[in-house]
């Protein structure tokens, strides 16, 4: 998937290479930052397909990268992204991180049509499973499970039970589908 390389480069650019490697090895979970500033920022005017092409996993990685700069963090605030009828709200995003995400999204949009990126992303995800694909119903379940493990879903208020079951990890963002 050559078109995803620029995306990866942007991630690496967030921090020194050595720290990035170490960070990637340990980003299984990130703790919720207690600081939650009242202010929130929203991204407007961004082409939706570019954001849609970014997998939730990559976004989590961006958040995890925030750990390395925690002692230097400026004001942290939730970041809400609107795209394709969905709303993604990320807790505890530093301004630097938010700017990096926006820059990355714009670069992806500029370098190629969003549709192509999205298409390749889909194919990439599915191609990894080749030739051993699952039935569609099981794929759907695993996708739902991933979404749930990623944080509170539309039905799931934060609760201790969730944390104890998922382990130490506490996710830092949730995705909510809105009716188109």
């Amino acid at each position: 998937m050559p078109s995803t390389a620029p995306v990866e480069l942007d991630f690496l650019g967030l921090r020194p290479a050595a720290a990035a490697a170490a960070e990637d090895d340990h980003h299984h979970g990130s703790s919720t930052t207690s600081a939650a500033a009242a202010a929130s920022s929203s991204v407007r005017g961004m082409k939706t397909s570019a954001i849609a092409s970014i997998g939730a996993h990559k976004l989590r990685r961006v958040i995890a990268g925030d750990e390395a700069t925690k002692q230097h963090q400026q004001q942290q605030a939730p970041m809400t992204v609107f795209y394709g009828g969905a709303v993604a709200t990320f807790d505890g995003v530093s301004q630097d991180t938010a700017e990096a995400i926006m820059k990355m999204a714009m670069e992806v949009t500029a370098s190629s049509g969003g549709r192509i990126v999205r298409r390749d992303a889909f194919r990439g995800n599915l191609t990894k499973d080749m030739p051993l694909t699952r039935t569609k119903s099981l794929q759907q379940f695993l996708q739902k499970r991933k979404e749930r493990l990623s944080g509170p879903g539309p039905y799931l208020p934060a609760s201790g039970g969730r944390s104890s079951r998922v382990g130490a990890a506490t996710m830092t963002f949730h995705v909510k589908e809105e009716a188109a």
Partner: peptide, 12 residues
């Protein structure tokens, strides 16, 4: 019976 879901785990 098959189906149903436990949407609110932690609230046994």
């Amino acid at each position: 019976f098959a189906g149903g879901a436990f949407f609110e785990v932690g609230e046994y």
